[in-house]
Design a binder for these strands. Sequence first.
DNA 1: GACCAGGCACATC
DNA 2: GATGTGCATGGT
Length: 222
Amino acid sequence: MISNLEKIREFYHILFNHYGLQNWWPADSKFECILGTILTQNTSWTNAARAISNLKSEMRLTADNLDKIPLDQLAGMIRPAGYYNQKAIKIKHFVHFLNENFSGDLDIMFDTETAELREKLLGIKGIGPETADSILLYADDRTVFVVDKYTYRILSRHMVIPEDSDYSEIQETFMQALEEDSTVFNEYHALLVRLGKEHCRKKAICHGCPLEYDLREKNIEL
DNA sequence: GACCAGGCACATC
DNA sequence: GATGTGCATGGT
C-alpha cells in the first residue's frame, strides 16, 4: 500500500510514459494564452480555438485592440466558444484590469509576485481559481498547480483524494507531492485532461484506463 | 435528442 | 456555507 502522495508521483510517470509530452499551452503569445484560458471555460478546446482563430483573423491580439472593439462585435467573434456574451464581458474585464493596473503591459503584470498576482487575478469578475492558475502556469511558467474537473474526477475515482475535496485542498495535495517544477506542473495537468477526455468522462466507466492497468500490473493496491 | 466540454457568478435556502 | 441555476456552441 503506497501513500496518496506517492500515488500522485506514480500517476505522473505512468501518464507521461503512456501519452508523452502534451506541449501545452497552444498559443502564439502570453496574451493569446490568457484569452484562451477564458474562452475554454467549461468548453472544449476545439471550440475555444475557433473563437481565437476568428479574433486573430480580425485583429492583432493586443489589450488596446480588445479595449476598443465594441462588446457585441467581440461577442460575435467568439461565438463558437459558447457563453459568448459572458465571455466577451470577461475579456473586457481582464483588459480593463491590465490597462488600469499595468498600463496594458503583460510584462509589467508578470513582474508581480505570484501570490499577490493570483489574488489580483481572482478579483477580476470572470476569473476564478482555475483560470487564474492557468494564467500563472501556462502564460508565465509559475509553479502553480492547476486543478480542474478532470483532476477531481480522476483522483477521487482512484481514491487518492476524498470525494468532498475542494479546489485548494486538491491543489495543496499536488504541490506537496511534487517538486516545484513548472514543466512538470504544466505537463501533469495537460496529461490529466488527456486521460480525462479518453477514460474519465462524466458517466463513462474508465474502461482501459492506463492508470488502473499499470497500477495493477505493478501490484499497487488502489 | 441527450449528454458533455480544459468554470464562474449569483440567487436562494 | 451548501446547493441550484444561467450561461451557449458544437461534437458524440
